[in-house]
């Protein structure tokens, strides 16, 4: 195997990943539009949006929120870096959690009722998906005997065959993390909702751009994890990611937004149930 300096890999990941994420987001918007019988924006629309936002006036409610926006992005990047370096998957999840918490705290640091409600809902989202993600890593460990990302990628068996129930659970997690219906109550990609824009409401201009870029990284990360379900063959892995992508967007377009108590109940029964059942048979 060719060994490349980890610093170079990390830098490459930092630079390349957001573009991939942006393209995925662009595809998302286009596919959504097609499903609704519309033409939709150009593929590169997310990039235009961010470039525009970066050049807008940096207005704030207080300085604290800026701190959290930067932390959110930085730790999201760190997730990708750790992944690129083939580091421990559990640690990647924890760093991802840090990133999300930074977003939550940023939303709570301003005196906006909408933003605060959004943050609270985001906490509930974390509460419902975090155990499933960790269980997923446990499942991967039980198959591969290692938590390291690099070992997952070189293992000989496709994970999907051993983790068939964790896959739908992960799909639900993905729907939550990508802020799609029926779980898009903390914030939403669509303009209007009952708490306006929820957690990201008080960010504008370049700071909103920071959150958008972080979302690109996050999107990439999630789809990357999806491909890991069939890491032995890259085309099949990509196919799986594509299926996830289509499924999530389809779900987004055909279901209504539901409430967080419903989500908590659903994820702790159905989601966690699926994940735990899958894990259980791996133990036995």
């Amino acid at each position: 195997m060719i060994t490349v300096d980890p610093v170079i890999i990390a830098l490459l990941a930092i630079v390349a990943v957001p573009f991939v994420g942006a393209i995925i987001m662009g595809l998302d918007r286009r596919l959504t539009a097609r499903m609704q019988g519309r033409v939709g924006p150009p593929l590169l629309q997310p990039i235009y949006d961010v470039l525009k936002l970066l050049r807008k006036e940096p207005i704030v409610v207080n300085r604290v929120q800026v701190v959290y926006a930067c932390l959110h992005l930085a730790f999201m990047i760190l997730c990708v870096v750790l992944l690129a370096l083939g580091q421990d998957m559990l640690m990647v999840l924890f760093v991802l959690a840090f990133s999300t918490i930074a977003l939550i705290l940023g939303g709570m640091s301003v005196r906006s009722p909408y933003s605060r409600i959004g943050s609270q809902r985001e906490i509930m989202q974390m509460l419902s998906y975090e155990p499933i993600l960790i269980l997923m890593m446990v499942g991967i460990y039980l198959i591969n005997g290692s938590f390291m990302a690099r070992d997952i990628l070189v293992s000989g068996k496709p994970l999907l065959l051993s983790l068939p129930l964790l896959f739908p659970a992960f799909l639900l997690v993905m729907t939550i993390k990508l802020q799609k219906s029926p779980f898009d109550f903390a914030t939403s990609h669509h303009g209007h909702q009952e708490i306006v824009k929820g957690i990201t409401l008080e960010y504008s201009g370049p700071f909103l751009a920071i959150l958008e870029i972080a979302h690109w990284y996050e999107t990439f990360l999630l789809f990357f994890i999806a491909t890991m379900f069939w890491a032995t063959s890259i085309p099949v892995g990509l196919l799986i990611a594509a299926v996830c992508f289509f499924g999530v967007i389809l779900l987004d377009n055909i279901v209504a937004r539901l409430t967080w108590p419903w989500m908590l109940r659903f994820m702790w029964t159905a989601g966690l149930g699926l994940a735990a059942t899958n894990i259980l048979w791996l133990y036995i």
Binding site: V39, Y48, D49, G191, V196, S204
Partner: peptide
């Protein structure tokens, strides 16, 4: 869908902080 302003990248956001 008939007019679809999103073709032009126009997004209807719900709040002034994000709007142009």
């Amino acid at each position: 869908p008939i007019y679809d302003v999103e073709r032009f990248g126009i997004v209807h956001v719900g709040n002034p902080k994000h709007a142009d």
